[in-house]
Computed example of a mutant assay.
Amino acid sequence: MAREGEMEESLLDLRAFLSSAGSSRISYWNETLGDRDGQGVLWARFSQSRDEHGDLTGAPRWKMISTPRQREAMSKLLCQFCGEPARMPDGRLLFLNSKEECGPNPNTTIRTAQPPFCLKHARMAPQRCPHLAEHGYVALLTQSAPLYGVIGTPYQYTADRTIQAMACDGVPVPYGSAALDWIVAAQLVRTPRAYTVVNLEDL
């Protein structure tokens, strides 16, 4: 989640990068190594409210996503609330997804942009997170959750040589897709596998 005082940084630095081979992709004018992930996808820049010791400041904004912290929590499998490793002693991971994301079929393939929780903070999340409170939730205890892709804003290069944002439909785009060349990612997505639906109070 984001904190008060944090916001997405200006996207005015975006440009079209044209390679010598004739391919193109979106980039920043002043791009740094950290702007792209290991698969070469460009990520949105987002400010962070921290004090002189590096600790987070500002009240939580539960409805707003902090892009860099979501990316870090999902890539390193950290609890999205406390930032500590989320794996349980037996190696399993606990994800909370809204019921509408999981669907009625328990065997369906689930994609999630919600980082995992440690057991302590999973129990309090349904009361704190407006999305889970509004739609209800399903707790998934899973053996693995490999990376799938990203959710982000697609852009296009127009005829008058400007970069234009297009509507984001929220559908994850898998790694390896050519469409990622023109997407600015905001959320990392994983696929929980070999999961069991559980009651938090039973854990």
Results as ranks from 00 to 15, higher is better:
Asn105Met: 01
Gln164Thr: 12
Asp169Glu: 10
Glu72His: 10
Tyr137Gly: 06
Glu101Trp: 00
Pro104Ala: 13
Glu84Gly: 04
Ala86Asp: 04
Met166Arg: 15
Leu147Met: 09
Tyr137Arg: 12
Cys129Asn: 15
Gln143Thr: 11
Gly170Arg: 10
Cys102His: 07
Leu140Glu: 02
Pro68Asn: 05
Lys76Arg: 13
Glu100Trp: 00
Cys118Gln: 13
Cys168Thr: 14
Ala139Ser: 12
His131Trp: 08
Ala139Thr: 10
Lys76Asp: 05
Pro116Asn: 11
Arg161Lys: 14
Leu141Asp: 06
Tyr157Val: 07
Arg69Ala: 08
Gln127Gly: 14
Arg71Thr: 07
Gln164Ser: 13
Thr109Gln: 12
Glu101Pro: 00
Asn105Lys: 10
Met88Asp: 05
Tyr157Arg: 15
Lys76Glu: 10
Thr153Cys: 05
His131Cys: 02
Phe81Ser: 14
Gln143Gly: 08
Thr162Trp: 07
Ala139Phe: 01
Ala133Thr: 11
Arg69Glu: 09
Gln80Phe: 01
Glu72Gly: 05
Pro130Gln: 13
Pro115Arg: 13
Arg123Val: 13
Arg87Ser: 12
Thr142Gln: 06
His131Asn: 09
Thr158Phe: 02
Arg111Met: 07
Met124Gly: 10
Gly136Thr: 13
Leu96Ile: 03
Ala145Ile: 01
Ile163Lys: 09
Gly103Trp: 02
Arg123His: 11
Lys76Cys: 04
Thr108Trp: 00
Ile151Thr: 08
Pro116Trp: 10
Leu119Lys: 13
Arg71Gly: 04
Leu78Met: 09
Pro116Ser: 08
Leu94Ala: 07
Thr109Trp: 07
Val138Ser: 07
Pro116Cys: 06
Gln164Leu: 08
Tyr157Cys: 02
Gly152Pro: 02
Gln80Gly: 03
Val138Thr: 14
Leu94Trp: 03
Gly152Trp: 03
Thr142Pro: 00
Pro116Val: 05
Asp169Lys: 15
Phe117Trp: 10
Arg69Gly: 01
Leu93Lys: 08
Ala125His: 11
